[in-house]
Design a protein around this nucleic acid. Sequence first.
DNA 1: CTGAAAGCGCTAACAC
DNA 2: GTGTTAGCGCTTTCAG
Lengths: 339, 339
Amino acid sequence: MNIKKVAEKAGVSITTVSRVMNSSEKVSESTRKKVMDAVKELNYTPNWFARNLHNDRSNVIGLLIPDMLEQSNMELARGVEKVARQKECNIILCNTEYKKTLEEQTIKTLIERNIDGLILMSSALSEQELRELHSQKLRFVLIDRPDCAETENVVCTNYEEAAEEAVDYFFSLGRKRIAIIVADRAEYIGKNKENGYRKSLEKHGVDVDDSLIIKGEDTIQGGMVAAGKLLEMKNRPDAIFAATDTMAFGVIERIRQEGLTIEDVGVIGFDDIQTGAVMEPKLTTVTKPSYRMGLTAARILFDIIEEEEITEQPQSIVLQSRLKIRKSCGNKERIREIW
Amino acid sequence: MNIKKVAEKAGVSITTVSRVMNSSEKVSESTRKKVMDAVKELNYTPNWFARNLHNDRSNVIGLLIPDMLEQSNMELARGVEKVARQKECNIILCNTEYKKTLEEQTIKTLIERNIDGLILMSSALSEQELRELHSQKLRFVLIDRPDCAETENVVCTNYEEAAEEAVDYFFSLGRKRIAIIVADRAEYIGKNKENGYRKSLEKHGVDVDDSLIIKGEDTIQGGMVAAGKLLEMKNRPDAIFAATDTMAFGVIERIRQEGLTIEDVGVIGFDDIQTGAVMEPKLTTVTKPSYRMGLTAARILFDIIEEEEITEQPQSIVLQSRLKIRKSCGNKERIREIW
DNA sequence: CTGAAAGCGCTAACAC
DNA sequence: GTGTTAGCGCTTTCAG
C-alpha cells in the first residue's frame, strides 16, 4: 500500500494525495474528499521512513535509565514524557541494568536509529567516554552526573548537601555513632552522599570510622544484609543512613528482626518512594525532585535539539532535595504527618 | 553526511560503502579498511530512514500502559524488553494515564510511526474499538483483557479465581463480613475480581451485601478513603480485600488510625509489590506474574509480526496468580516468611 | 570483488 | 488547484 495506489484509486496525482495527507497547501474540497475516501478504503498510512527521508528529525528521543523498577526513575520518565508529548515526540525507553556493555550497546543502537536526542542516566560511562559521544553528533542531557557539570548538559540534585542535612538531623537527635550504607552500583551518586556524610561528621567534630561506611546491594535484601553487618558490631551504630529507601526498608526490617527498635537505631532513607509513607515506622527520608528533573532535562534536550548549531554553553542545573522528617529516627515529638 | 561523501573520501562507489556497512557481501580487506577509515573520519552513521525504506519492518514496537509508576506494569515492561532485545527491537513506551483520548491518540501516532506491533494494556477501549485496530493492519497483543479472549491475542491472569482464593482464605480464618474495594479506573479487571469475590461468598452461603462492595481511587489515599467509609459503618466488616496493594497500604494505615488492628479487620491486597514484604504487618496479597506476562505477550507479538499472513487463530494465554499468605490477616500461626 | 543504475515512498520545487 | 519531475540516502539487481 503506497501513495501511488491511493492516487490511482482517487484518480488524482500523488502530489495531491501528499497534500491532503499533510493538510498543507490548498486542495479543493471535492478532491480532498475523493482522496480521503480512497485513503479510508485502502487503509492507507503514509510510510514513516519515506516521509522522514526529507526531514532530519525523527521525533523520537531516547531515555536510558539503569532500572525501570525503581520508582524515582519512572517519575523522571513521566516528566520527560510530559515534555515529549508537547513536542510530539515519542520516547524509546531502555534499561541498562547498571551494565556498562548494555549501556554502550544501547547508545550505539539508538544513534543508528537516528534519535533526535538522548536523556542519559549513566551509571557506568566515564566522563571521557561521555564526552566522546559528541563526535557522533548525539545531543544529550545527563542526569545525576555532577562530575560532568563543567562540560556537559547536566541535571542533578544536591546529593551531598541533602545527605549532610540528613546526618545533621541524626546529630540533632543526640545520635553520634552514625553509619552510612551506599548502593554499590551507584558509584557517582554514592560518592556524593558519602561526602555529605563526612562533612556532617566533621562539622560535629566526630572522627570518621571507616567500618561504619559500607556498601550494599540496592534491594531490600541488600539493606538487610548491610544492616546485619552493622548491628553485629561490638560497638554498633545508633543511627543508619541508608542511601536509598529500598535499602532503608531492609534496614528497618533487620533492626526489627534483631529485636531492636528505631529507638535503638534510627534510620533515614533517600528517594522518598511512596510506600515509605505507610510503613511502620513511617520512613524519614530525603525527597528528590525526580519528576521535575525529568521535565527539566527534557526541556534542555529540546532546546539543544532545536538549535541549529550547538552554540550555547552547556547548562548544569541542580534541583533541591530535602529532608522529609517522619518517624523512623525514633523522635518522640509529635510531628505533622507528611506524605 | 551521507553515503556519497564517504564513498568519495574512500575513493570507492556508494555500493561498496553500503556493502561494508551491512557487512553483507564480499569486499576485499583493503577496500573495507579504506571505507572504515572514511566512516570513522567523517563520523558517518547510515540514515535510518533511507535504510528502512526498503524494509517493511521498523524494529520498533509500542508498549502502552496506563501508569508507569505502577511497579507491576514496569515488571511487565521488563519482560517485554527482554524479548525485544533478543529481536533487536526497541520499545516506545507510552503512558495513557487511564484516559481514553490519550490512548486513542497515542495508538494513532504509533501507527503513523510504522511500529511493527503493539503490546496494549488498554483500560478504556471497548472490545469493538480494539477489533477495529485490525483494519489499520496493526498487529497487537492485549494485556489483561479477558473479555477479548475470543477474538484477539490476549495475555492475562486468572483474576477471578485468584480473588476467589483470597476471599476463601478470609473465610478459612473465620471471618465472615468481608468487604472488597476495587480500583475505580480498572474497569475490566475490577469486574473480574468482584466476580471472584461474589463466587466465594456464594460458595460459603453468605449473601452479598452491596454496601460492602465499593470503589476506590488506586492510590494509598484512595485506599484510606475507601477504608474510612467501611470502618464507619455501624456493622463494619472484619475483613477487607483491597484489589490493589497500593490501596491495601492505605487500608492498613486507616485501620491503624482508627485505633484498630488487623485482628479486628484483616486485609488482603493484590499485585505483590515489593514493599508489601517489609511493611508491618507484612501484607498478605495475591502475586501476579507480571514479568512472565510481559515475556509471553512479547513472544506472541513477535510470532504474529514474523508471520507473513495472519493465519493463526488468536491465542489467549492465562498465567496463574496465587495467594501469598503473610501477616495482614491477623492469623496467629507462625508462617514461614515469604518474600 | 566492484560499480552503474534502478528504484523504495514520499515531498517539494516548478510548471500549467 | 493540480500535475510533472527531480531528488532524499540507501539497497539491490545486474553487469562487468
